[in-house]
Simulated assay, not measured.
Amino acid sequence: MTTRLIPYIQFAGAAREAVTFYQEVFGGELTISTFGDFGMPGADPSHVMHSELKADGFDLMGADGLEPDQVVGETRISAAFMSDEVERVLGWFARLSDGGTVRQPLEKQVWGDMYGEVTDRFGVRWMFNVALPGDDAPLA
C-alpha cells in the first residue's frame, strides 16, 4: 500500500446528509456506521461514527462529533482536486455549487490552468485546479 491523503471531514450532526450528497456528486461506494451500530454509550445513536466514500480515484471520510460541542461553526477542512479532466471537474463544481457559495468562479488563470473554489451547503471549501490541454479548452 502506498501513502495517500484521505480527507476526513467532521460535521456537527449533518454527516449522513453530507456524505450521501457527496456520493451523488462523485459516485462511488458509501459505507456508514453510526454510534448506535457500535453501542457507544453517551452518544446519539443516529449520528455517524465513521463513513467512507470510495470514489473513482479518491476516498473521502466523515463523521459527526461524539459531543455536540466538538464540532462547531464551519467544517474544518478544504479539499483540493488537481486534475486534467475538464468536463468531470466542471460537473463536480456545478453540483457542489448547488446550495453553496462560489468563492472563485472556475475559470482560466494567469498560470494557464483553470481554477475555482466553492463552499458547499455543508460549509466544506472545495478547490479545483485543472491543467488545460491547450488554449482551445472549454472554459466555464
Results as ranks from 00 to 15, higher is better:
R88V: 12
G62S: 14
V19T: 09
Q109D: 02
V72T: 15
M114S: 06
A94D: 13
T119V: 15
P45F: 00
M82E: 14
F21D: 04
T75N: 15
R16T: 12
A80H: 15
E24K: 12
A15Q: 08
G39T: 03
P138I: 09
Q104N: 14
Q23F: 07
A55F: 03
E85K: 13
R125E: 09
A15H: 06
R16C: 04
G13Y: 10
T34F: 12
A79F: 06
D135P: 15
G39E: 10
A18K: 04
E67M: 11
W126R: 04
F122D: 00
G39S: 10
V25F: 10
F35M: 02
G91L: 09
Q109W: 00
I77L: 13
G13I: 09
G134F: 03
A55N: 03
I32L: 08
L132W: 01
Y8D: 11
P68S: 10
W92N: 04
M40C: 11
E67F: 04
F11H: 06
F122N: 00
V89A: 02
V124N: 02
F93Q: 03
I9F: 11
M82L: 13
V86S: 08
T119W: 06
P7K: 03
G27H: 09
E117T: 14
S97G: 12
Y8N: 14
M114Y: 00
G123T: 13
G42N: 08
R16E: 15
L53Y: 06
D84P: 00
D59R: 06
T75G: 05
T119G: 04
T75C: 14
P138F: 11
R76V: 10
T34L: 11
S33W: 07
G36E: 06
G57M: 13
F21P: 00
G116R: 02
V102C: 04
G27T: 08
L132F: 07
V118N: 08
G39L: 04
E29C: 02
W111S: 05
V110R: 09
Y8G: 05
L66C: 02
T2L: 11
L106Q: 05
Q10W: 09
S83D: 11
S83W: 06
K54Y: 00
E74N: 14
I32E: 04
M49H: 01
L60M: 13
A14C: 09
Y22Q: 02
H50P: 03
V19N: 01
P45H: 01
E87L: 09
P105H: 09
L139I: 15
S51V: 07
G91K: 09
A55C: 04
T3N: 14
T20H: 00
P41A: 10
G123P: 11
S51Q: 03
V130N: 06
G62R: 01
Y22T: 01
T20S: 14
M49R: 00
V89S: 02
F122M: 01
Q70H: 15
E107V: 09
G116W: 01
Y8H: 15
T20I: 03
E117H: 08
Q109E: 10
S97H: 07
D113V: 08
R125H: 07
L66V: 10
V89L: 06
L66G: 07
A94R: 13
L30V: 08
E17A: 14
M49K: 00
